[in-house]
Design a protein around this nucleic acid. Sequence first.
DNA 1: TTGTAGGCGTTATCAT
DNA 2: ATGATAACGCCTACAA
Lengths: 343, 343
Amino acid sequence: MHNKPPTIKDIAQRLHLSISTVSRALRNAGDINPETKKSILQLAEDLNYQPNRLALSLRQNQTNTIGVIVPNLDYVISTMVKGIDEAALEAGFTVIVCQSNESFGREVVNTRRMLNSLVDGFIISISSETKSNEHFKVLSEREIPFVVFDRVIPDLLASSVILDNEEGGFIATEHLIEQGYKKIAILAGPQTLGISNSRLEGYKKALKKHDIKYDDELVIYCDFNQEFAFYATEELLSSKKRPDAIFTISDRMAIGAMLAIKKKGLKMPEEIGLVGFNNEPSLALFSPSISSVEQPSFEIGKLAGKIFIEQFLNNDFSNHKEVILKPKLVIRESSVRMTRKGN
Amino acid sequence: MHNKPPTIKDIAQRLHLSISTVSRALRNAGDINPETKKSILQLAEDLNYQPNRLALSLRQNQTNTIGVIVPNLDYVISTMVKGIDEAALEAGFTVIVCQSNESFGREVVNTRRMLNSLVDGFIISISSETKSNEHFKVLSEREIPFVVFDRVIPDLLASSVILDNEEGGFIATEHLIEQGYKKIAILAGPQTLGISNSRLEGYKKALKKHDIKYDDELVIYCDFNQEFAFYATEELLSSKKRPDAIFTISDRMAIGAMLAIKKKGLKMPEEIGLVGFNNEPSLALFSPSISSVEQPSFEIGKLAGKIFIEQFLNNDFSNHKEVILKPKLVIRESSVRMTRKGN
DNA sequence: TTGTAGGCGTTATCAT
DNA sequence: ATGATAACGCCTACAA
């Protein structure tokens, strides 16, 4: 059995004081004799006293804990979570992460469980499979505060922190156009997801700006994974409409595309250009190194955390903030042709 | 403000019963009139009553929550965590994951915070930077139960679930030897880590069995990352002792090695063989596909979870179980020479 | 079969 | 400046 951790009661008894005095001393609240205070603090220190968070939470009806719900923990999302973590730590909050990837059911179960007096609110990024909002609507009804980030939930009123995904699609595509690529394909992710569509919109916008006509045979919707991208690219490359550049809306997909390109024996960037999305660190190491759209993942998470905490402390979740951060293109070998104009 | 969730008190008042009766009905404990019980259950259902876990935990001095402490959440570890998750879910436990990667300080902070009445115990895999056991020794002193997995803590008495890392090193190396490779290098990870040393031991054992003399110039200790492996391999390949095969103790490192090999223009597997460790899914997609030692990550996690829960429920942490699971070699193109003997 | 009362560790209100 | 007491939501002797 555990050696029970010390409580204020223990301290009070040892010092022949009442628990309320001890409590006050520990939180330096109210008037208190400096002498007594000193002795209390000393003993607390010696006993390595830590307030019991359970009791605190029960008493204050507040856990100082944020439930974070994410679809998975890939590079981007785990970076965002680290941002949330930092914001939370600074404000004395704890973060509970719940990854519900495969199972929608588990998402529901976990949300409920956390809801059940374990967290003060949520910071949420929905999973790509999640179609129903029901389990989150409960939050609104019970007036549980939450903030959404990265992948936002349609119809759900809450503050949000997201990337300007359209801009991301735009700068990637325009860069390829400026490098002289004419037939630019896009691996566009699952059609159900907002971020997919926004990035695709940016792609279209760039084409339009540069008077390139949009061809939907160059648009491939596919799952967010390397394997799928590999096969999709193989198919693209053997089709009549073979593109001379590919923009993939994730780096995993870019790697899949690159493998297919290499297998086909095409030279990159000469014969085909490639730009990914997320700027995972390993991209710099590939040969050729891969260009990618970088998003401020950490900041997105940190901002989401800050907004949550701010609104929570002010108890004001009616003013929905909408923060949109800008992406940045990181240009590497995979998309820069050696031939410079006018050289 | 929240619509406060219903409590047994609410139910009791509505039904003109005492809270203890309601409590009993809800947990079907003790004798109780079927009629009353039915009405209670009905109302609880209607109100969507959920017991307040905080109050429960405070009362029972037990949170039904396991704190999981991991160095990071890479492919292997996050798979293990999923295993823990499953074991926990089956037994009605909740898992709190705390990733303390970069900062040793945060590991300490988080451990303390969780300890502080948020968890019943821990399941731990130490970080590679962690040298001191102090913050875990506290656990022993306070008799907080914990189980270690994957990367175990020296000197710390607890049940453990690990991979037979030596066996992993052995089968990878022996496979390369059987494929006719003569000068096999090993990228061996950080020297401080037990798993590194065990895999290296296996490597040595295989060499010895096949009468190949051990050459410590072929042993490179390095960080667990792709970049470092890339540079280490570049160096190996330009040295006089250029190896004809490389065994890396992680897949990230294998990918780094492969990039260096490709850059150097060496043919794989003809001129140089490669075997990784962990069997991440993407390995199958590379060209050539990469052989790797597979470990039953999910099972390791699930077993760790089961053992924790079993020992916790029996309140018996004095019998330390030590489970060692076997790895399996997955052979792909990177290590199989086309030239078959006697063909 | 049902109700009463005390307690888990803490804070807050009201006395003293 | 300090102490007694009620309350947060729940469980559990013990009493009725």
